[in-house]
Design a binder for these strands. Structure first.
Length: 280
DNA sequence: GTTTAACCCTGCACGC
DNA sequence: TGCGTGCAGGGTTAAA
């Protein structure tokens, strides 16, 4: 789950979960459920900090989701690859790989489902958020209004790294994963292996605009749901952006702009897709 | 400083 | 049918 999917989830939670009070919380008995709450030694240590409290705000930092609670605690969630929240109720059976269930006083529940269990969830205090190492490393959000192209240009010039891994580096810019970094680079007309400090001012501007346009567009389409990854929103509904993808997962198929076959290559261990004609 | 590889995990496609 | 292998990709960490 990358920035657009986390943002769609945040908006759903803001509408449907913020304001609700937690009546009960359960960490399921599986080994993977303990993996999800790996920062807490015991289940009770985690659930005790939730029960009786009300969600007051849903915030996003890069790919992290912060669910604030009254009383000053925060539930921090990172979805990894296959993690997601799903609204449900007692009458509905828990789907496989459900690790955490939060019951609301007003009825209904919130399930955390994560087949690959690469996600993580923990409770901390708002005061100690600044001490969480992972959150400290989250760089500026490309959709933040304080993210200016001049600042972006300086940051790119200060590094000599290939664009694709750099865009996926959460300490450089936050929120991009494998799918959106490829889509952004296509929209900017830049190759994955261009070095960040070789970009002209015009190319930097193109990349800056591509970041915002692609991410905003993906949020408007409620995220990308691929067959295998099966991201769905809080209510189980798939996104629509997979129909808008220009390069990701399209190896061998004609480029939507110039008909040249899309190529795929391994970059920093990730399969990357690009158009050899449109991107330079 | 930058890049690579290994690790965590499950489901699925693949070849034999 | 069933087994082993490799891949998918979020991130971190250690090593090159």
């Amino acid at each position: 789950m990358e920035l657009p999917e986390v943002e769609v989830m945040r908006r759903d939670l803001e509408k449907d979960v913020v304001g609700r009070r937690i009546a009960a919380a359960e960490v399921r008995p599986s080994r993977n459920a303990m993996r999800i709450i790996r920062r807490h030694a015991r289940r009770k240590e985690f659930t005790d900090r939730l029960v009786g409290h009300r969600f007051t705000k849903a915030e996003r930092r890069g790919k992290y989701l912060l669910l604030h609670l009254d009383g000053g605690d925060v539930l921090v969630v990172h979805f990894g690859m296959s993690g997601r929240f799903l609204r449900g109720n007692k009458r509905q059976a828990l789907p496989p790989h459900t690790h955490v269930v939060i019951d609301f006083q007003q009825g209904g529940d919130l399930r955390y489902i994560d087949p690959r269990a690469l996600g993580e969830m923990f409770v901390t205090t708002t005061d100690e958020l600044g001490k969480v190492k992972e959150l400290q490393h989250v760089a500026i959000d490309p959709l933040d209004h304080v993210f200016t192209w001049q600042q972006f240009a300086a940051a790119l010039a200060a590094r000599a790294a290939k664009l694709k891994p750099l865009l996926m580096d959460q300490g450089f810019i936050s929120g991009l994963g494998n799918i959106y970094s490829d889509e952004v680079l296509f929209a900017a007309g830049l190759r994955h292996d261009r070095l960040s400090n070789t970009l002209s001012a015009q190319e930097v501007r193109r990349l800056y605009r591509a970041l915002q346009e692609v991410l905003q567009d993906a949020i408007r389409h409620r995220g990308t749901t691929l067959e295998d990854e099966a991201y769905v929103d809080l209510f189980g509904k798939p996104g629509e952006y997979q129909h808008e993808l220009k390069v990701y997962g399209r190896a061998g198929q004609p480029c939507r702009r110039c008909r040249t076959p899309i190529e795929s290559v391994k970059v920093a261990g990730r399969t990357s897709y690009f158009c050899p004609q449109c991107q330079s």
